[in-house]
């Protein structure tokens, strides 16, 4: 299936740099593969939880975290492959009407870690429309710098439940790997969020 994703204007590492620049107290979940490397390229952080597995579960983790921390903005940054596998979780997030959750999909229309096969978004599946159809009152697709500039404040601070699908160029980039020890990632996140005496 052909795709024009190699011509998309926006570059994922530049986008993630803007998204996570001066990130404040936002809580970040990164989907497995490229988006985990992306959020790490923007600067590994104790309040980032990058996944190395659990494909399809990234938004679900964001739902539990946003429910537990209603006063903190939770940013889920994931790819189109992970989002396609976990589309039902968009319906769950909308049903819970989580006012502090942002779902940001970097959509390059390809499975980046497995040989750059096209995903369903390359042949017309529209994730922003799906999120809207699941009940996200705020859902948009971003393809240009101007659209990104307009969307960034919404991505970072809301208001309310936000879904933004950012079409990014299909490109193989250098790996920037986060720690892969899941117990370490979990514990550092909890200590940073809940305090050093958390058990």
């Amino acid at each position: 299936m052909p795709s024009t994703a190699s011509e998309f204007l926006l570059r994922r590492r530049e986008v993630v740099g803007k998204l996570l620049h001066d990130r404040g107290d936002r809580l970040v979940i990164g989907g497995l593969g490229s988006t985990a490397w992306d959020i790490t390229a923007a600067g590994d952080h104790d309040l980032s939880f990058p996944l190395w597995g659990a494909m399809g579960g990234t938004v679900a983790i964001g739902i539990g975290l946003a429910t537990a921390q209603p006063d903190r903005r939770v940013l889920v940054v994931t790819g189109d492959g992970d989002m396609l596998m976990g589309m039902g979780s968009l319906a769950t997030a909308a049903r819970q009407n989580l006012k502090n959750l942002t779902v940001c999909v970097f959509d390059n229309e390809h499975y980046g870690e497995t040989g750059m096969q096209t995903t369903h978004t390359a042949s017309g599946t529209n994730l922003a429309a799906i999120a809207a159809g699941c009940g996200f009152a705020n859902s948009r697709q971003v393809e240009t710098e101007d659209q990104l500039t307009e969307a960034l404040p919404l991505l970072r601070d809301g208001p309310g439940l936000q879904f933004v699908c950012i079409k990014v160029r299909a490109e193989k980039l250098a790996f920037v790997l986060p720690p892969k020890d899941g117990v370490f990632l979990k514990t550092r996140f909890r200590r940073a969020l809940l305090g050093a005496d958390v058990v």
Binding site: V59, I63, G64, A66, S89, L193
Partner: peptide, 26 residues
């Protein structure tokens, strides 16, 4: 209690991981 209706059970495993990261038991 926040009761969370899922579309499939595997979502729940993710939700509870997120809950624990945020300090909630689920």
């Amino acid at each position: 209690i926040t009761a969370i209706s899922l579309t499939t059970e595997e979502e729940g495993v993710g939700v509870l991981a997120g809950a624990w990261l945020g300090g909630d038991r689920g």
